[in-house]
Design a protein around this nucleic acid. Structure first.
Lengths: 156, 156
DNA sequence: ACATTTAATAAGAATTATTCTTAAATAGGA
DNA sequence: TCCTATTTAAGAATAATTCTTATTAAATGT
């Protein structure tokens, strides 16, 4: 399976036809499970976990397994069809620097690099945020591949 | 133990003296374990996991347990002394919307609300980012308490 | 349409991260 | 210094995710 060249590639949720093409191009099969999982995640208004998708899909596909959901979500992520909302959900990571700063996260090695970004700090939030609730912190996250991992990639 | 009023409260990593005060005010004991964990996380240049801190601390405190590290990090988080880099590390959450958008995350119920923020999208990254590696995505995350959870809090 | 091949699935076991339980130890106020 | 409520260490328990393996089925060529 070929990894999507960059996450910037695609926009709006893909359609089922696009999914078919993408699978063909990646050389993977479009199974009924993949199709259903794709439809479920594309139409979801929340940001469901594998478990939640499992509960929802069991109604249509009573024999589907949680493992397939996980496997498929990982596949879709590699194909650039979906994103995981947060990258670091193997081990929790902690930070004692309480000053405003932001994070660059390497998607390969999970390294976190701090940086300052005053222009971000001074950018005013959209008006409609107030309706969400009380905000007490804001920060930017960049995703990318760090120098070391880029270097490693070259030499392969 | 009293929760810190808001994460905005403190700045720079706290000093050991501040820790002593904060513990007294919160009515919790300043144990040697807490002190060592605090020093380790404050002086760390990376963003260590509990496991990593455990490895580092075992040298000084051979009897410390991983459980204590977890417990203490949770305590420090509640006190507003440290932050976890990402909030959602119980269950991974997925998103099929590949258009640029940002997230408000409720720290109580873990609900995620999407929003658009064109002013952020058009804010130029600092120059020094280029040195980190290749960036292929950027997004903002707000942390706060959603309307529903605020309401629940009032009625308690 | 059919057979072939190779990838994908379901089921359950295994692994990993984190929290809970409990008995023993101890920080901090009286 | 003593007392007591907290905190700790150890190991058990739980929860999320991945791995193993036998079976099934999608895609390709005929």
């Amino acid at each position: 399976m070929k990894r999507a060249p960059t996450q910037k590639g695609r926009k709006k949720p893909a359609s089922v036809d696009e999914l078919r093409d993408i699978c063909r191009q990646a050389g993977i099969k479009l199974t009924p499970q993949r199709l259903e999982i794709f439809k479920a995640i594309s139409s979801a208004q929340d940001h469901p976990s594998a478990e939640i998708l499992y509960e929802r899909l069991k109604k249509r596909m009573p024999t589907i397994s949680l493992d397939t959901i996980y496997r498929t979500l990982n596949t879709f992520e590699k194909l650039g069809l979906i994103k995981r909302v947060q990258l670091l959900n193997d081990q929790a990571r902690f930070d004692a620097d309480m000053e405003s700063h932001h994070h660059f996260i390497c998607t390969r090695c999970k390294k976190i690099i701090d940086f300052k970004w005053p222009d971000f700090d001074s950018t005013k939030l959209p008006e409609n945020i107030k309706a969400f609730g009380k905000v007490y912190g804001q920060q930017a996250e960049l995703r990318g591949i760090c120098r070391q991992c880029l270097k490693k990639e070259e030499s392969e």
